[in-house]
Design a protein around this nucleic acid. Structure first.
Lengths: 248, 248
DNA sequence: CGCCTATTTGAAGAAACTCAATTTATGTGG
DNA sequence: CCACATAAATTGAGTTTCTTCAAATAGGCG
């Protein structure tokens, strides 16, 4: 169990939002330093959990959103009939819990894919602060709007694209997001197992495996388990956007 | 309450949000009548468009969200590869444009399925008002959160459910939403053609038709084109939640 | 009334799934 | 540090659901 944090360690973890290397990802606010101070009073930094542990669970009472600081998190919903759907993979600088501001508690579960740390943003205090810092309100509207957009794009992917298109799209999305965090955009270390990729993309694990193998044979990627290198990004983009059979 | 509208025409168009029969659907605000007045200054009511016309188009500059007042609207996105995905059907009292608050204009197109009217909510004025009416800010956070949740549920449906499950789920969702508007929950008049149902649910039109026919033969529904009557809602729910083959 | 679109129905085909088995990682206790 | 146990990933073969193609029927509107 690694959930206890010594006071010394907590102090070390506590760094200002201003100094945070992720600040322009998670909260790129056009706010005064005074406002940043108020934000820091609200945000609780430096919580850490092990792989496989939950940040929160579906139907738990909703209190906070969380910004991923390190590691990676998956969110998933479980339907009445017990089926599970991963709704997103979240990398450092990305925010989870935006789908849970209704009156019914968290609408998804969030589980760490690796040992991960995050900042907690208590919602009632956020709301209160947002009325006083218009750019913070604006930022959250934009974040939530983007979250809707992302989910719509996932629906499109699930509804209209082939297995190859879905997987190429995911690899490219991860590549973009990794590079935004100053990680290599070609040498990826996937934070999630094949099973999660399959679930997220609405495919069977075997299909994911087969497509990855096919991509590798075609020279599009190199793949050893979770290490994937994108060897021909233009070709991957061509696959993601419908291969070559379409003429519109 | 205060002032009279001077011209008869303005009086006809302008009805207060307070009096609107949809108010507890679209803006059930716990606000003072003073706040309602301010809201009414912002909301532009009574715009009407014909079937097939757009409320807004993808990539148009984003200015406003819209509350559907009458009729019905579909929203859809078009991918780089030209594929179209309907992301939602919106009935009176429901709000569109929540996915477009980013810097890149509307992220979907919205088209009237019938002659429809709506209220326009200019976003910059809404934002400004939301900083001064905390319950309005809270309400929009909830609305957007719900929109994310809805989209996640759609992803689940597309990813994990059979054609029958998808269609039963949609019929039940429409039933619920109709009854919330004091319309029959069993005798539905679908605002959208089969083609749109198919697109929304990630199916071929033929599949939708076949499943509807099957439901009819099984006595679950009656169906004559867009008129659908739900004859056995419990059975439909059973179908929607995975039929009877699952034992969990 | 006739054209155009929407819907329905049939038959054949394909993409992905399921089932089954093997190989490769991962982790734990001796 | 190694051996075993377990989980993850890959590969193969057969099956299924849904799609695609094709055509007939019904509806709506000028």
């Amino acid at each position: 169990m690694g959930e206890r944090i010594s006071t010394a360690r907590a102090a070390a973890l506590k760094s200002s939002c201003q100094e945070c290397s992720l600040s322009n990802l998670c909260l790129p606010l056009a706010v005064s330093s005074h406002d940043i101070d108020r934000l820091e009073d609200v945000v609780q930094q430096g919580q850490t959990i092990d792989r496989g542990k939950h940040v929160f669970r579906q139907n738990d009472p909703f209190r906070s959103c969380y910004a991923v600081r390190s590691g990676a998190v998956k969110t998933y919903i479980i339907s009445d009939s017990g089926e599970e759907q991963i709704t997103g993979f979240y990398l450092p600088g990305e925010i989870i819990g935006l789908d849970s501001m209704g009156p019914d508690g968290y609408s998804c579960s969030a589980k760490a894919l690796d040992r991960s740390s995050f900042c907690e943003i208590p919602f009632n205090r956020l709301e209160e602060l947002a009325t006083r810092i218009p750019s913070l309100q604006h930022h959250f509207f934009q974040l939530m709007s983007q979250e809707i957009k992302n989910s719509h794009n996932l629906s499109l992917l699930l509804s209209k694209n082939s297995a190859e298109e879905r997987i190429a799209t995911l690899l490219l999305s991860l590549s973009t997001r990794f590079s935004r965090r100053r990680l290599s955009s070609t040498e990826l270390i996937l934070p999630m197992p094949r099973h999660d990729i399959a679930n997220y993309l609405g495919l069977a694990v075997e299909t994911v495996s087969r497509v990855m193998t096919r991509f590798q044979r075609q020279g599009l990627i190199g793949s050893h388990g979770r290490e994937v290198s994108l060897k021909d990004i233009p070709a991957l983009k061509a696959v993601a956007h419908g291969g070559c059979q379409k003429d519109d």
